[in-house]
């Protein structure tokens, strides 16, 4: 009796069990593996983004503009030098930017242009596994980038506290607070027309106005009120506190806000993924 190729004999009633050797880990891990395999072919571009761009920003803004700021010394900045002030902010902003970029086009592509997500839900994977798997994958990438960034900060001599070892975790949490809601929203879109608007009206204003380059207290009151709701501000406060050694009880509040963004994003994602993939 030869083994049939490509199919198993239909099981008799009562013996419907998964074949040996499947699903020993949570299902979302399969999704992480899937992203890892794809990533092997595209790491080159993200190395530029992750490794080189933060150094360039630190050089240009931290040291270049810093030379103008420190020479004047008009405002008392946490950490003393402008470089020390800007560096943790840039680290948080970098996480936000790569999380946003990775959450919009690739997510829509997986249901619109490549349609790979439909293939995935044709297996035992459920939409929610895709949601969690993608975020878990982002967390791994963001952690690698954040650890590297922290080392760069150490080289630039702006690290002032052993608590800095927690800074990468804070940055990862900050990144997920963007990727979770944005991926969920991207899944509900029919085309990419509004994507550039997200960058212009959400990502860029946060980058420029919510505490990377100057303290939010300088903003007019109504703008400041908006800035402190922004997840980026919370991420920056956390990262800055851990790097410069000014962390305190209020940081638990920042963590709570960011966690709430991530959970809300995943729940929203479960809804939009299910709607799209199980129409």
């Amino acid at each position: 009796m030869t083994t049939p190729i490509g199919h198993r004999r239909y099981p008799s009633v009562g013996s419907v069990q998964p074949p040996a050797g499947t699903w020993t880990t949570p299902r979302f891990v399969r999704v992480v593996e899937y992203h890892l395999v794809g990533y092997r072919r595209m790491w080159r571009g993200s190395i530029v983004r992750i490794v080189i761009s933060p150094i360039l920003y630190l050089l240009s803004m931290g040291i270049g503009v810093g030379s103008l700021v420190d020479q004047r010394g008009a405002v008392d900045l946490a950490g003393g030098s402008y470089l020390a002030f800007v560096a943790p902010g840039l680290m948080a902003a970098a996480a936000m930017q790569s999380a946003s970029a990775a959450s919009l086009y690739p997510v829509l592509a997986s249901v619109k242009w490549l349609r790979t997500a439909y293939g995935q839900v044709g297996t035992p994977l459920r939409p929610v596994d895709l949601v969690v798997g993608l975020q878990a994958w982002f967390a791994i990438l963001a952690l690698a980038a954040a650890i590297f960034f922290t080392l760069v900060l150490a080289v630039f001599g702006v690290v002032a506290s052993p608590l800095v070892v927690l800074a990468p975790l804070a940055t990862v949490l900050g990144g997920l607070s963007f990727s979770a809601p944005l991926a969920a929203w991207a899944m509900s879109q029919q085309d990419d027309h509004k994507f550039s608007v997200v960058f212009r009206l959400i990502v860029l204003p946060m980058f420029l106005l919510s505490g990377v380059f100057f303290p939010v207290e300088q903003l007019p009151a109504p703008l400041e009120a908006v800035a402190v709701v922004a997840p980026l501000w919370h991420t920056i406060e956390l990262t800055r506190g851990l790097t410069l050694g000014t962390a305190g009880m209020s940081d638990f509040f920042h963590v709570a806000v960011l966690v709430a963004y991530v959970i809300a994003g995943c729940l929203y994602g479960k809804r939009t993924y299910t709607r799209r993939l199980y129409p």
Binding site: V65, L68, V69, R72, A74, V75, L77, Y82, S196, V197, R200, L201, L204, P205, L208, L209, F213, F214, Q218, L219, P220
Partner: peptide, 23 residues
Amino acid sequence: VTGAFEPFLFLASIGIGVSVLVG
């Protein structure tokens, strides 16, 4: 339309924020 907004954000960040630090 929103694209026109972009340079203003930079200007706001510099005008409100960084220029106070730089003088």
